[in-house]
């Protein structure tokens, strides 16, 4: 029998944690991408949902087509399409970046907030998330019912004013439980940006594995970080839902 040097999980954990600054900067970048993509997806999704519901024959079909296309094609393919589109059209993308750095526990942490790669990732995630958010929002708008809009119009409000002052305040409260699905999925989807060289949490994990040759422990740590983050997001949205709830809505 050959005695092997069995891996010691504690030693592995400590080795990986020596690279905490990389993992931390990756986490911050992932959250940065997530926040902007969720916001962009929300604004665009709200516009799409309204176009689909109230846009009339042509606009509602355009919105439906967009939503179906984005939901029916792989996110990674969409990312590559947007990433490679400028160079295939001979449009220079430039070599620019917006960087922030700070020192924490004697380690300097540098994060590239925006460069061409990050921007391509952000746009893709936002455009993709918009399609899913639009469907949640449309469901909530439909659940409010046409009678509410009719009542608003009977008072002399325009259709747009009725949608803004009567339908949306109700729909946005109702959508929170369903919409929290998207808020919980999106952090995990951000990992696709690894494939175009953005140094997100997943890329930093890969980097750590390359230096330490410790893979399982590293990825378990990454998994735990995602788990905790998403649990906190869900809890936060639960609290928001309870705080904004109105009897009968």
């Amino acid at each position: 029998m050959i005695l092997q040097d069995r891996p010691n999980p504690i030693r592995e954990l400590l080795t990986v944690l020596e690279y905490w600054d990389h993992i931390f900067s990756g986490f911050l970048l992932t959250m940065w991408l997530y926040g902007w993509a969720l916001l962009m997806g929300f604004v665009l999704g709200l516009i799409l949902a309204n176009l689909r519901q109230y846009g009339g024959w042509l606009l509602s079909r355009i919105a439906s087509g967009y939503i179906e296309f984005m939901r029916g094609t792989p996110l990674l393919a969409q990312l590559f399409f947007i990433y490679f589109l400028p160079s295939s059209l001979n449009i220079p993308v430039g070599d620019w970046e917006i960087v922030t750095s700070f020192t924490i526990l004697n380690k300097e942490i540098t994060i590239i907030l925006l460069n061409y790669r990050t921007l391509a990732g952000l746009i893709t995630l936002g455009l993709n998330s918009a399609a899913y958010q639009a469907e949640y929002l449309r469901g909530a708008i439909m659940s409010v019912g046409t009678e509410q809009l009719m009542a608003a119009q009977s008072l002399g409000m325009s259709r747009i004013a009725g949608i803004w002052h009567v339908v949306l305040p109700q729909a946005l409260r109702r959508v929170i439980p369903a919409w929290s699905n998207e808020a919980a999925y999106l952090p995990k989807y951000t990992v696709v940006v690894y494939f175009i060289g953005v140094k997100d949490l997943f890329a930093q994990a890969h980097f750590t594995v390359a230096l330490t040759f410790i893979s399982v422990t590293t990825y378990v740590i990454i998994a735990i970080i995602f788990l905790v983050t998403i649990t906190l997001i869900s809890k936060g949205l639960d609290i928001l839902h309870k705080k904004t709830t109105i009897p009968g809505l």
Partner: peptide, 28 residues
């Protein structure tokens, strides 16, 4: 819209704005 402001309507199923208190339903 300006004309409808001069024609009130009361609905069979009330159609009160569900997110507004009674006073805000009247003042909106």
């Amino acid at each position: 819209n300006a004309i409808r402001a001069k024609i009130g309507m009361v609905f069979q199923h009330f159609n009160l704005f569900a997110h507004l208190k009674a006073i805000d339903n009247v003042s909106i």
